[in-house]
Design a protein around this nucleic acid. Structure first.
Length: 265
DNA sequence: CTTAATGTTCCCCA
DNA sequence: TTGGGGAACATTAA
């Protein structure tokens, strides 16, 4: 569910609720979501104050008065403020006067603790933020790589935050075939791609992300950007530019949507 | 019953 | 060393 715009929306909806809250008690129930000693993690969190919450790539970084939590929502993770516990609730945070629930049917998400003020390792290894990296840097780094452009944009150590939906959307808008070798993309084309990524992410954030199946923000509200998708999930439907049916192929084991006429290799 | 799903990581091979 | 392919993780829905 969660790529950069969705995670950003979760953080924005969660931040005002968590400000100044203290974790009275915590409980974790999944060995996948919370690897290691779950009881020890819960004990460590009891009594901690939430200092800040921010997004980095697809991670939610919650800083505490001692240590911090790195939360990744995986495919189906949800952080729900005053949510109701269900069969897929794997994390419970009892706050001063509220309940924060972590739900995740597939359990691909992770909640991990880091000591002190250190940046959690998983966050430290991330590539630049798409909305911050200067175009010139992006262009140079893109053209230095030999990989196909789609898997490269999905690589979080290259660029942090894009997932399957927004890569397909960005490549569609930049009219680049997903199998194009990154180094073969011309400078002007790379510039267009950078611009497309920035525009897509900004508009998607404005629309509170894409709700494909079950994504909701921390207040349980769905996003609206899915109705503005031009490639993702539009297999067989006419291209908005040339009416050619959108094609779906497999690239790097991911379903990939593109216009065979607008996006040529 | 089979397949695919917003993600990441790890192993194997070229 | 780099990159690609495939599998794995767990669950649900079509």
């Amino acid at each position: 569910m969660p790529e950069l715009p969705e995670v950003e929306t979760v953080v924005r909806t969660l931040a005002p609720h968590l400000k100044g809250q203290r974790i009275a008690r915590a409980e974790f129930r999944s060995k996948f979501v919370t690897p290691g000693d779950r009881k020890a993690l819960a004990a460590r969190l009891a009594g901690r104050e939430i200092v800040s919450i921010e997004r980095r790539g697809k991670f939610i970084w919650i800083r505490l008065d001692q240590g911090s939590l790195a939360v990744h929502l995986g495919m189906t993770g949800r952080l729900l403020f005053n949510g109701v516990e269900g069969p897929h609730t794997h994390g419970v945070f009892e706050l001063n006067d509220a309940l924060l629930i972590y739900d995740d049917p597939r359990q691909f998400g992770r909640i991990e603790w880091s000591a002190g003020g250190a940046t959690p390792k998983r966050i430290a290894v991330l590539g630049p933020e798409p909305l911050i990296i200067p175009a010139a840097d992006f262009i140079g780094q893109l053209r230095a790589r030999t990989t196909k452009v789609k898997p490269l944009l999905l690589n979080q150590t290259f660029l942090a935050g894009l997932g399957n939906i927004y890569v397909d959307e960005a490549l569609f808008r930049a009219a680049i075939h997903p199998n194009t070798s990154a180094k073969k993309i011309s400078r002007p084309k790379a510039q267009v791609l950078h611009q497309a990524i920035v525009e897509i992410l900004k508009v998607a954030i404005d629309h509170r992300g894409s709700s494909i199946s079950d994504y909701v923000d921390a207040d349980g509200q769905r996003g609206g950007f899915q109705s503005l998708h031009q490639a993702y999930g539009r297999e067989g439907e006419p291209c908005v530019r040339c009416q050619t049916p959108i094609k779906k192929i497999l690239v790097a084991q991911r379903g990939t949507h593109f216009c065979p006429r607008c996006q040529r290799r």
